[in-house]
């Protein structure tokens, strides 16, 4: 018996959350989506809102499993991937 594929948990914060229209979604991209860059390209096809949110890709930061990540970072089923603007705390 094969295990059911585990979804990716995708989180959005600040204006990314407002533009996508949700703070969190569970997605099941195809297996070849195995990096942050590939995930972004795939997420952009999900809806016009996703496309609009990721249109300013240069301003979007990412974390994989709560660690800052870059476009080449590997993503795998079960990971938590977050997208957000550059941080402005302090």
């Amino acid at each position: 018996m094969t295990a059911a594929p585990r979804p990716l948990r995708v989180l959005y914060f600040a204006w990314m959350r407002e533009r996508v229209g949700t703070g969190e979604e569970a997605v099941q991209p195809p297996a070849e989506v195995d990096t942050v860059a590939a995930l972004v390209a795939w997420l952009r096809t999900r809806s016009p809102r996703h496309e609009a949110a990721f249109a300013m890709a240069a301003s979007v930061r990412c974390a994989v499993n709560q660690d800052f990540a870059d476009p080449d970072t590997t993503v795998a089923p079960g990971d938590e991937v977050a997208f957000f603007p550059p941080v402005t705390g302090g």
Binding site: F13, A14, A63, F68, A82, F84, P85, V87, T88, G89, G90
Partner: peptide, 14 residues
């Protein structure tokens, strides 16, 4: 600490 907090901790201001 404050310089790194401003650039490396995930907070956003509106």
């Amino acid at each position: 600490l404050i310089d790194w907090l401003k650039t490396r901790a995930p907070f956003w201001k509106k």
